[in-house]
Computed example of a mutant assay.
Amino acid sequence: MIDLANVMINKELRVSAYAICIDDGKILLARWVGADEWQWTLPGGGLDHAEDPVDAAIREVEEETGYRIAVETLLGMDTVRRRHPRGPGREADFHGLRIVYEGRILGGTLRHEVGGSTDQAAWVDLDRVADLERSDVVDAGLALYRVRPRNGRVSGP
């Protein structure tokens, strides 16, 4: 049994930028691969130090899918907070800030990322998304895309 009084908690903040690209009833997704799991996600990821979020979304989409995009619109932001074990006596209090843009394909060719955090990229019919093993950022992105809230978030105060 773990003595909770002696658990070290690390606060972790990760700011990420994603692009939702929809064309002809299909959405562009990338398959994220972890140590023992995988799930479909929006193309995107963490900002590099001092990187602008728009530039990060453009860079990440190209890295993960092979496409060059234009960022059309800031759809909004989504936050997530989770606690994760980080080894014996350590836990992470993770806070993710996810910035979601609408992207338009400018060029490139669909390809899979090599040596990164994703291993596949695909256009998926929108009516099939609910059946996929997927990250919650896909649902958050689709909600922002459909609702286009004035305050930049779908739910909350």
Rank of each mutant, 00 (worst) to 15 (best):
Q120G: 03
A92V: 15
D23I: 08
P43T: 10
T118V: 13
G25V: 05
D24L: 04
C21M: 08
T41H: 01
G103M: 11
T73Q: 15
G116L: 04
E113I: 00
G46S: 14
W123C: 04
A56P: 02
E60G: 00
D78P: 03
G96A: 15
K26P: 00
Q39E: 09
T109F: 01
E113T: 01
R59K: 08
T79I: 14
Q39V: 01
H84T: 05
A121Q: 04
G115E: 03
I69Y: 12
D78N: 15
F94Q: 15
T41V: 04
E60F: 11
G87F: 06
G103Y: 13
H95C: 14
W32S: 00
S117C: 04
E91W: 02
R68Q: 13
A57R: 09
P85W: 12
V71K: 06
C21N: 06
D52K: 09
G116R: 02
M77S: 14
E60Y: 08
I99S: 07
G107N: 14
Y101Q: 12
E63C: 01
E60P: 04
A121I: 10
Q120W: 02
G87P: 05
T41P: 00
A92S: 15
P43H: 03
R111K: 13
G89V: 03
D36C: 01
L47Q: 08
R81S: 15
A121S: 13
V124N: 05
A57Y: 09
H112K: 13
D23P: 00
G115K: 06
V124R: 09
L110N: 08
R83H: 13
G44N: 07
L42K: 06
E51N: 09
H49Q: 13
T79V: 15
G46R: 13
R68V: 13
D23C: 02
V114P: 00
G108P: 10
F94G: 09
D125K: 10
V114C: 02
I58Q: 12
A70G: 07
R82D: 11
R68G: 05
R111S: 07
V54G: 04
W40F: 08
I69H: 07
D93K: 03
V33I: 10
L97I: 15
G116C: 02
P53K: 09
H84M: 12
I99A: 12
D52W: 00
V80F: 10
R59T: 07
T41D: 03
I27A: 11
G89T: 07
I105Q: 10
L28K: 00
E60N: 11
T73F: 06
